[in-house]
Design a protein around this nucleic acid. Structure first.
Lengths: 203, 203
DNA sequence: GAAAAAGTTGCGCGCTACGCACTATTGCGC
DNA sequence: GCGCAATAGTGCGTAGCGCGCAACTTTTTC
């Protein structure tokens, strides 16, 4: 079994949350964010509007949920990497685990979803709300580098920079004229970060 | 005169916008974001609630306006730096221009404002909404490095990384136990970025 | 199988964001 | 200066959201 000890109840909760976030994303991609009512999302997932608000406190939150979950999983993956691995290699592999799989080659659904996230300011904003996932990532970095996630600048900066790489790579993924796969863009971004972002004009 | 050719009318608009953003920030710091109505902000600035919404489309937007304006000014400052200056030196100086002045030593007002921004998820989210300022910064970086702001990954990544430095430095600025001035933290963050964020445990 | 705990739902309220039409103010050409 | 066009400010009305509250239903536990 892959499940730890879920408890039948928590399973249903997770399933409902998944259904809601999928429904929200699908509807928003299809008809645009403004033309989706909370009512519609709830109906799509077979729950009442009120229940919807028990899971997500805003429309945007539901849509963005899957993306934020990726960051969360990446933080977990980073904790699982062998301690002997160099930081940036571990970081790259940990981030590729949730981000790389769906994006080996440009998939229409994925592309549409990313385009939605980047085009709607409200979603862009919601992506970083609170920054809980980023904090988890920072904590994992801290554990690996022997720094303090609260008192030291380093882990926070690394986590924020990693998120910057995700953002920039996604951005590039859309505007690339000959449609390029996501993964190389992302690894390139991380590589550039680890190399100190050298000025290409003086290279 | 420092003004280009403002036109008396646009001056009043700018003044009103300033008044509104100041009022919003002040009230939010004093009584917390949730206890501030749009009505209050409008009253504080001497305009009708409806007019408020002609300037800012949300409560958070008004509060965050000053901060985003700093990034905008930094982008302009970067364009004004001499072309011979190395990228990261120019970037550091450009960013310090709007960010460094008020923060040479921990000022109670400034501290309270930063704390508000970091503690309220809604404001945190609003800070990066749309990312127009970040795009301006990327454009300035592109102009300086001979890259294309649309087609190349590099300028977007540098801009996003710079914003990450702002975020991390602000974060650190608050949690530093012996209250530390902002400027050194910020320059240190940029220095680390330019150095490729080396793992401190293997140094 | 019954009590307890947790999830779901309907109702209602305060607030927000914004379209629309109207009024007041400003800028500009003469 | 003067009047007209353009633009900012305002009041009103509306759709929708987020959430507290108090039932009701389902699952868990003993």
């Amino acid at each position: 079994m892959t499940t730890d000890q879920p408890g039948l109840r928590e399973r249903k909760k997770a399933a409902t949350r998944e259904a809601l976030s999928w429904a929200a994303l699908r509807l928003a991609v299809e008809r645009g964010l403004e033309n989706v009512r909370v009512e519609d999302i709830a109906a799509e997932a077979g729950v009442s509007p009120r229940t919807y608000n028990n899971y997500f406190s805003s429309k945007a939150e539901a849509i963005v949920f899957r993306h934020r979950d990726r960051v969360r999983r990446a933080a977990g993956a980073l904790r699982g990497r062998p301690a002997t691995e160099p930081l940036w290699e571990a970081l790259t592999r940990a981030l590729l685990e949730p981000f790389g799989d769906t994006a080996e080659q440009p998939h229409p659904r994925w592309t549409a979803a990313v385009r939605l996230l980047l085009s709607e300011p409200a979603l862009q904003a919601e992506l970083w709300r609170g920054g809980a996932e980023e904090a988890q990532l920072a904590a994992a970095v801290a554990a690996r580098t022997g720094t303090d996630p609260d008192r030291d600048l380093y882990p926070k900066l690394v986590a924020a920079a990693a998120m910057a790489a995700v953002k920039a790579a996604n951005d590039q993924y859309l505007t690339a004229d000959p449609p390029a796969p996501f993964q190389p863009l992302f690894t390139e971004a991380l590589r550039l970060l680890a190399a100190g972002l050298p000025d290409p004009s003086t290279r």
